[in-house]
């Protein structure tokens, strides 16, 4: 597929938005669901973009920045793998497989940029000495732009070279046993993301809810909306009934009006 100049420019812009989303973690434009869809749209095959996005999103479900820990980078993985699949005519399975080393590369790149931006922080200190708010704004936005370039420049290189015979023959030389095996692995890899999310919230006494979800999903055909509602109801009922939350109110009641609460007990 030949990529037009307008498409190259659009890929660059989408990559910028995705790169900014990756550091900001606000609008989630770096998540596969959004980034892959946008790249698919720009390159003229939105359906494939959405499918890659959905598949990668499940794998990346637990990739989160908590405290000072940096997660594997969803932005670079989503953008480049979608370009390789849509413009480079690779299978979706191969795209997913390529996304993993790309996520590691993106992680290294963001660590580099997050180290460089220490200098911007020191620049802000100097701006504070002079009371110059405009310089401080400018420093903050430049650091953000640097994060945008972290994704946009690699994406630009890939989208320009993807049509060349050298890259094509390299991509086509991946043997069948690798792509088939990667497809198999794709069905299992999702559990890494689930495990990351579970570990973050894991409390032994709450694990029954995990098993409840597992068993209900195993023996019913409920979709995720129905399962979500059941989970929400379980959460609300648990909070309402848990003695942990009812104790303070009860203690207050007995100390305030011991006689009446005693009467209540007798009536019961």
């Amino acid at each position: 597929m030949t990529v037009s100049v307008i498409q190259i420019v659009l890929v660059f812009l989408v990559s910028c938005v995705s790169g900014m989303g990756s550091i900001l973690d606000e609008f989630q434009t770096h998540r596969p669901l959004i980034a892959c869809t946008l790249i698919g749209l720009v390159l003229g095959d939105i359906t494939t973009g959405i499918i890659i996005g959905g598949t990668l999103e499940m794998i990346a479900l637990g990739w989160m920045n908590v405290g000072a820990a940096i997660a594997p980078d969803a932005a670079l993985a989503s953008i480049i793998s979608t370009i390789l699949v849509v413009a480079g005519h690779q299978s979706i399975g191969a795209g997913i497989a390529l996304a993993i080393p790309l996520a590691a590369a993106g992680q290294v790149l963001t660590i580099v940029v997050r180290t460089i931006t220490v200098a911007f922080q020191h620049g802000a200190d100097r701006a504070s000495e002079n009371g110059n708010l405009r310089v401080m704004d400018w420093l903050h936005m430049s650091a953000l732009l640097l994060q945008a370039m972290r994704i946009a420049i690699p994406a630009l290189i890939v989208v320009v070279t993807v049509g060349t015979t050298a890259v094509q023959s390299m991509l086509n030389s991946i043997p069948q046993v690798i792509t088939g095996g990667l497809n198999v692995a794709g069905g299992m890899i999702v559990v890494v993301g689930y495990a990351m999310v579970i570990n973050m919230m894991r409390a032994g006494y709450l694990m029954p809810f995990f098993f409840l979800g597992f068993v209900i999903a195993a023996f019913t055909n409920f979709n995720l909306v129905a399962l979500g509602v059941i989970g929400l109801v379980a959460a609300i009922v648990y909070i309402q009934l848990s003695p942990k939350y009812n104790k303070p109110a009860f203690a207050g009641e007995t100390s305030g009006a011991a006689a009446t609460s005693d009467n209540d007990d007798e009536l019961d």
Binding site: M58, L61, G186, G187, M188, V190, V191, Y194, V197, I198, M201, R202, A203, L206, M207, F209, F210, F211, L212, G213, F214, V215, I216, A217, A218, F222, L224, L227, G228, I230, G231, L232, A234, A235, I236, Y238, I239, S242
Partner: peptide, 22 residues
Amino acid sequence: EGASILGLFVMGSLVNKWTKVD
């Protein structure tokens, strides 16, 4: 705690529904 319950419940169902091993 409520969010954790909902999250764990949904993760449990995902482990079952959205994985593929044959």
